[in-house]
Nucleic acid binder design. Structure first.
Length: 768
DNA sequence: GGTTTTCACGTTACG
DNA sequence: CGTGAAAACC
């Protein structure tokens, strides 16, 4: 690498960033504040390692929090390394471990065809384990048992280890279920996400050869979002870096928001002890936010008692003040957001994709979605029920998993009666019990049943031990035949074809088509989409593609697929998921005691500190503008509640805040600056004058078109203070929508009856 | 065994 | 309020 090339790589970096890039020998801890260019530092460091130090890209490992971050990293690396970027191993701990175990798991008795179990599978096994242990699920909710087990596992505790720490009856219950759960899990050759980690550690412990292999494989290892790693993950990093000690971790303790998922912030503290001679680099300059936003965020987070002070600063301009506003209820809160979005897109140079609306709990998205629909604003809801989590998708995946590995018991149980085929709870329980008594998997028991069954059905002879009536047996054998027949298709079909075959032969598609349920149509759409995803694996028989396809489905969440596209839409996302992203304009809604901080955290100081970090993460996403909204009343679980303003608001210095309340009074309730035009919220009862916005722009029967909803016919045009609410019946999927005239860009689809009005429908609603 | 009704419950979510 | 799972019913 020439000196010039090296300079180019370091060009534009501040001294601390430079130091982090250039320190390539030995352990490194980077404490990176928000917006400090941490991603840039990581990618440049990798490029530097490769091009300047000469480490092959295949021997550099980068562990990220999400697959999305890994993908992003690879994209950035391509600019620096070109083709070589492909060889950098970037992924999550889980994907890394899955690969290691597929390859070398045999050394600890793990068959390469193990199945990765997700939360639902886990819960199912927990419930069954509880039945076996005779534990009442009413007294011990399966979910909390599961989280206790998962917590133990991610701290690398075995049931025995748990017993030693046991403090009471509850731990004993957990211990017993834990043991049973692991038995059930291994019987179906399953591995949960915690096992992926702990079994990798086990492999490294049992097989020095395997450990040595991966120590050589990853001469350099980097871990991003280190504050959100758990004990097991850190252990893996320590093992792999055990030989060369080239471990670089990057994190920000103030952004640790996953302790409830067993992330252990102590990892950061123990790092320097575990790796003596660690070089610590602080990235303190913020390149993202205005100084107002950064200073407000710093003030907020400095109220936390347990933390290390970071001297964050920025050279960015002061920028607009932070706007804090109160709405009457959550609908109005959403309306304020949308009005402000509308105003900023109109008056300033913001595009829809520059905005994000973020909130503490998913339930808050509803009001926002409705407001978006009303305003005709396209939006993207991030999260919610994830694609692979949808029932129909999981059903189909279960079928496919069953074809790949018929001993996958959770999958078998999931679909044995889906669609209903006369195998009820009783039969399933009997089957499991019978298989258990023979110490064989349920699928093997079915085969046994089929083998003996034909005679028994014909000759009414019943010499075997199975507990089934002829009818039950018939149904069960029928299901077995379905699976076996489908399995026979594997070598001859490509994946999409196979999926069609599964849906048809199983009767799944038929049952959805015949279904009366209103969402049956959506389900079919989802299945179609799923088949679409499988089209990436064409060109080989599904006997080969099924395994990698399912692995991908288990390890990759749909969150990875988002953003990227050029589409203009408003993003709705939770505060947890927004970590790592940035937007020019950020709205945080529900800044109330009880929501942010959440009710469940109010009485625990540690949890309250985490809530504060959540708020901090949200605020520091903003580059130019930050809005903190709350509402006076909020419907939670149907019951209306009134939450006081968030205690966090008191930590934000007044001089950084726009006096929104005063302004709101002066202008009749909106967020706009005094004197600037904008629509008055219809539902705010205030003493501002009611202004009507000119003559009705449309009449019932007018044909109109809308950028996202297409063509439609106006059904009604209702006067609102300062605006018109237009009800339109759109063609196709969109259906009936109520849109506000001032914002929805409705265009007349035919020669307008009064061109004056229609030609300029949006810009100045007050000029009537 | 399948369908309907009632009931309880409700934070955040990476892989 | 909305959902999913257990209980009650057919």
């Amino acid at each position: 690498m020439t000196q010039q090339a090296r300079d180019a790589l370091l060009d534009g970096l501040n001294p601390a960033q430079r130091q982090a890039v250039e320190h390539v020998d030995g352990p490194l801890l980077i404490v990176a504040g928000p917006g400090s260019g941490k991603t840039r530092v990581i990618t440049h460091r990798i490029a530097y390692l490769n091009r300047h130090v000469g480490i092959g890209p295949g021997r550099i490992g980068a562990v990220t929090f999400t697959n999305r971050a890994a993908k992003e990293m690879r994209t950035r690396l391509e600019h620096l390394l070109g083709d070589r970027a492909r060889y950098v191993s970037a992924g999550t701990f889980h994907s890394l471990c899955a690969q290691i175990l597929r390859r070398d798991g045999k050394a600890i008795g793990l068959p390469p065809e193990f199945v990765i179990m997700d939360d639902d599978d886990q819960l199912g096994l927990i419930k069954r384990a509880m039945v076996i242990c005779e534990v009442d699920p009413k007294k011990f909710p399966p979910r909390s048992i599961l989280s206790a087990i998962s917590s133990a596992k991610s701290q690398l505790l075995t049931p025995e280890g748990l017993a030693q720490r046991a403090t009471g009856y509850y731990d004993e219950v957990v211990r017993r279920i834990f043991i049973e759960y692991q038995t059930l899990m291994s019987r179906s050759r399953g591995v949960d996400f915690d096992d992926l980690l702990s079994r990798t550690i086990e492999l490294f412990r049992e097989s020095p050869e395997a450990l040595a292999k991966y120590q050589e494989r990853f001469i350099h290892l980097m871990v991003d979002e280190f504050q959100d790693t758990n004990v097991a993950q850190y252990e893996i990093a320590k093992q792999i870096a055990g030989k060369y000690r080239n471990l670089a971790v990057v994190g920000d303790p103030d952004q640790s928001i996953y302790s409830w998922r067993n992330a252990d912030i102590r990892n950061i503290l123990s790092f320097q002890k575990d790796f003596p001679g660690t070089v610590v680099v602080n990235l303190s300059q913020n390149y993202r936010s205005t100084s107002n936003i950064l200073n407000a965020s710093r003030k907020l987070i400095s109220a936390n008692r347990h933390r290390l002070e970071q001297d964050l600063f920025t050279d960015n301009e002061e920028g607009a003040k932070i706007i804090i506003a109160e709405a009457y209820n959550e609908d109005e809160e959403a309306q304020l957001v949308l009005q402000e979005v509308e105003r900023l897109t109109r008056e300033e140079d913001f595009k829809l994709r520059d905005f994000v609306v973020t909130y503490r709990v998913n339930a808050q998205s509803r009001a926002l979605e409705e407001a978006c629909l009303r305003y005709g604003v396209p939006y993207k809801l991030v999260g919610g029920t994830r694609f692979y989590q949808r029932r129909e998708v999981k059903d189909l995946v279960a079928y496919l998993r069953l074809l790949q590995d018929p001993y996958d018991e959770p999958s078998l149980i999931r679909v044995i009666n889906v669609p209903v085929r006369g195998i009820g709870k009783r039969s399933i329980d009997d089957l499991i019990a019978w298989a258990g008594s023979l110490s064989i998997p349920a699928y093997a028991a079915l085969q046994l049943l089929a083998g003996d069954g034909t005679e028994a059905l014909d000759g009414a002879r019943d010499t075997d031990t199975s507990p089934f009536s002829p009818r039950q047996r018939h149904q069960l054998v029928g299901f077995l035949k379905l699976i076996n027949d489908l399995q026979a298709c594997l070598p001859d079909m490509e994946l999409p074809e196979l999926i069609d075959e599964v849906l048809t032969r199983s009767g799944y598609r038929r049952s959805l088509l015949d279904s009366e349920e209103p969402d049956a149509e959506d389900r079919l759409d989802n299945l179609r989409e799923f088949r679409g995803v499988s089209a990436d694996w064409v060109g080989m028989p599904s006997s080969e593609s099924l395994q990698p396809f399912l692995e991908n489905a288990a390890l990759v969440s749909e969150q990875d697929a988002i953003v990227e596209d050029e589409q203009q839409y408003l993003t709705l996302i939770t505060l947890h998921q927004i970590k790592g992203l940035e937007y020019p304009v950020v709205f945080i809604t529900g800044v109330e005691d009880g929501v942010l901080p959440h009710t469940r955290s109010l009485d625990d100081p540690d949890q309250l500190e985490e809530e504060r970090r959540i708020a901090y993460v949200g605020m520091t996403r903003a580059r130019k503008r930050l809005y903190l909204l709350r509402s006076f009343r909020r419907r939670l679980f149907g019951a209306p509640t009134g939450n006081p303003p968030s205690r966090f608001l008191r930590d934000i210095p007044e001089e950084l805040v726009e006096a929104a309340a005063t302004r709101a009074r002066a202008t009749g309730g909106g967020l706009r600056a005094p004197g600037s035009p904008g629509a008055t919220p219809a539902s705010i009862v205030d003493d501002g004058p009611i202004v009507q916005a000119g003559p009705p722009p449309f009449r019932a029967g007018d044909k109109v078109s809308h950028a996202s909803f297409g063509q439609g016919i106006v059904v009604n045009c209702l006067a609102k203070p300062g605006d018109y609410e237009i009800t339109v019946a759109f063609k196709g999927q969109s259906g009936i929508k109520r849109l506000l005239h001032s914002f929805a860009k409705l265009e007349s689809a035919q020669t307008p009856p009064s061109p004056k009005v229609v030609a300029e429908p949006i810009s100045e609603p007050f000029e009537g």
